[in-house]
Design a protein around this nucleic acid. Structure first.
Lengths: 197, 197
DNA sequence: CATGAAGCATGATAGTTATCATGTAAGATG
DNA sequence: CATCTTACATGATAACTATCATGCTTCATG
């Protein structure tokens, strides 16, 4: 039967968000088209009414997740305090334990490196994140602001990835804490943190 | 027919190294048992004469690759100059473009996070790398040496991962360069670098 | 309101993959 | 040297998966 356009559109976005969550949690190869459709309450049949292929779904779902993440970052980190809270949340145990709802880069970067088509999405995401980091620096660093934001992002992604991969809970905590301390040890940030306390 | 034990042992290690290289390049799900055996010049048949399962191969090949990598790190970075060269090599375009021969963490960390059995291998690898980094610091940092080595490793892994995932060659280079600069900007290292120039 | 088209469920298909089965011939072992 | 064992190649199997085919029914459109 034919369905109302509004419902169809709703299902479409539901597929997108289910897919991006499952991909982040289990990897691209770890989740099948059938599982994704099942997660949205549909059967595997209508998948190809919504997307060209699994590859296309990967692309579109990551694009969607990227925009959502950047919007959330905008909303959360629009003040210096917000930015600090955002960085803390990024390097928290909660974020570590919820990859399906978390950062695309930490969850999928190494797999995306192998999927030619999707690399442009990730590139835009990296550029946008570093741009936002620069703009959000409350102290408006002038000297090599872009470089500093790249360094910060690298450390954040690496620490979160390692904290997830490691088996030892104490080590995992230490990795997250060190990354937080590193960010706060930045003399420009340390001043701001001290003022808050 | 039956084969000489020496040849069989040689084939065994050949499977191990082919597997770890292919896994790093294409991911665990991206390479089949058949492809691995083919890469060693055998057919898929005798695989189960050598390993219990693909899962067991993953574990053993990563264990093997980890030990080799740590030995190579020991050999290359036994002097301050060696350590600097090692860090430079880690953050080089050559390393970025040869994941199959490169660091386990940058190539597979996010996938390993999902494979319970293998996490202990990666944990040992992280601990060994940070231990070596601490011991190799020529200046023998006293204050929070472990923390500093964890931060350094996080930045290295994150930068290499992002440099691989990104589509834009200039951005990729910039990420690597910033990570190198960050390490060398450490005042303790800067002195050493300056002395070299 | 009549007609056409779109989205759904069910089911089919072809390819891939991990793993197992079998026969063989030569090294290992006594 | 006789026997046994083992690693190999070939081939089989069962599960999974991406994608396609079909028919139904109801919304959308004029």
């Amino acid at each position: 039967m034919r369905y109302p356009v509004a419902e169809t559109a709703e299902k479409h976005t539901k597929i997108l968000s289910a897919a991006s969550a499952l991909f982040r949690e289990y990897g691209f190869a770890g989740v099948s088209v059938g599982k994704i459709m099942q997660a949205t309450g549909l059967t595997h049949g209508p998948f190809y009414n919504h997307f060209e292929s699994k590859e296309a779904l990967i692309y579109e779902s990551l694009h969607d997740a990227s925009e959502k993440a950047l919007a959330a970052m905008d909303a959360a980190a629009d003040t210096p305090e917000g930015l600090l809270a955002y960085l803390h949340g990024y390097l928290s145990e909660e974020h570590r334990d919820a990859p399906g709802q978390g950062c695309l880069l930490a969850a999928l970067a190494s797999e995306i490196a192998r999927e030619q088509d999707v690399r442009s999405v990730l590139t835009r995401h990296v550029v946008a994140m570093t741009d936002k980091l620069q703009r959000l620096f409350p102290w408006r660093v002038k000297k090599n602001a872009r470089g500093k934001s790249i360094r910060m992002l690298s450390t954040m992604v690496g620490a979160l990835t390692l904290a997830r991969a490691v088996n030892d809970p104490q080590l995992s905590q230490d990795i997250l804490r060190e990354a937080r301390d590193m960010i706060e040890a930045n003399p420009l940030i340390a001043r701001r943190v001290a003022r808050e306390i």
